[in-house]
């Protein structure tokens, strides 16, 4: 291939990338790959790709072999086989992206990544000591003051979601939405005691870890901070024999309503939902939830 046709193929590939991004933007599938807060970067990329593509296109018609006199090596591959390989590397993501962009990660990835315990500030053993040492009424207060004394730099989950916490503590029943999903589950995992007995309504897909009893499953969603590759599972245990849980297979999307309880799971004390009703739902248009970066200290 000569220089000019290289430029032409490159401009077509850049156009392909542009089309891919535009297609994702139109269909909304872009949020199945990256978080909304990364969108400005995508628009930047799209416009740069458009400009580069145009430049490559016009360059392909005008430049003769010796036009670049700045003496450095542009790696325009010599052999036909090699350039075929290199260009197919670029073509693969464009083609597979435009064909299979609506896939959503499910239970097999959730099992790979495991349950997300991240927002718990203490190790399991400490947690147990505390909950056994203090009575439920004053437990909350003493725990908070302990933390403050131990390390002033520690910021608890309730500091992170102050309004959400107020709202939930006041309510007798609450619903998890896209916007409060991560916050609510963090709060529930942090101080399950505060919410025991309340009614919760949430949706998510079903998955089970190895060794779960038959009447136990997790309902959760992937939480994304930048792109799907860094996603983690946010979910709650659902357990109870009032509903036939085994009829909800892994990867089914469900809406669960139930009462918050506490349970011991792998030496962690975790919140659990005892379901009063479960129903199958369609997979939502935005199946993932996203990390909030706003911080109202």
């Amino acid at each position: 291939m000569d220089r000019n046709s290289h430029y032409f193929v490159r401009s077509v590939i850049l156009l392909g990338f542009g089309l891919f991004i535009i297609k994702l933007l139109i269909s909304g599938d872009i949020y199945k790959f990256i978080a909304p807060r990364m969108m400005p970067y995508m628009y930047f990329a799209l416009s740069v790709i458009a400009v580069l593509g145009m430049i490559q296109f016009f360059r392909s018609g005008t430049e003769d072999e010796q036009a670049c006199d700045c003496g450095h090596t542009h790696d325009l591959s010599i052999s036909k086989g090699r350039s075929l390989f290199v260009y197919s590397l670029f073509i693969i993501p464009i083609v597979s992206g435009m064909m299979f962009s609506d896939h959503v990660l499910g239970s097999s990835q959730a099992m790979n990544k495991g349950f997300k315990y991240e927002l718990r500030s203490s190790s399991p053993s400490e947690e147990y000591d505390k909950s056994e040492a203090s009575s439920p009424e004053d437990g909350v207060v003493s725990e908070e003051s302990d933390d403050l004394l131990e390390d002033p730099a520690i910021l608890s989950v309730s500091d992170r979601y102050p309004e959400l916490q107020k709202e939930f503590q006041a309510a007798t029943s609450f619903t998890l939405t896209e916007d409060n999903y991560i916050g609510s589950i963090s709060l529930l995992e942090d101080q399950a005691d505060d919410y025991v007995g309340k009614e919760v309504k949430m949706n998510g897909f079903v998955f089970r870890e190895d060794g779960f009893p038959e009447d136990r499953m997790v309902v959760g969603r992937f939480g994304i901070s930048c792109c799907v590759a860094d996603g983690g599972i946010y979910g709650l245990l659902v357990q109870g024999d009032s509903q036939n849980l085994s009829e909800f297979k892994n990867d089914t999307w469900v809406e669960v309503t139930g009462i918050v309880k506490k349970v011991e799971h792998n030496n962690w004390e975790l919140p659990l939902i005892e379901p009063t009703s479960i129903k199958k739902i369609e997979i939502p248009a935005e199946p993932y939830v996203y990390e909030e970066f706003e911080f109202s200290g």
């Binding site: 990338f17 991004i21 994702l24 872009i30 199945k32 790959f33 990256i34 990364m38 970067y41 995508m42 930047f44 990329a45 740069v48 790709i49 993501p93 597979s96 992206g97 299979f100 962009s101 896939h103 959503v104 990660l105 499910g106 097999s108 990835q109 930048c226 792109c227 799907v228 590759a229």
Partner: peptide, 17 residues
């Protein structure tokens, strides 16, 4: 398909940078 999704998300995220 999982692999394809993760692959594309890494590519898409890295391209602007």
């Amino acid at each position: 398909l999982d692999m394809n999704t993760i692959f594309l998300s890494i590519v898409l995220e890295a391209i602007p940078f």
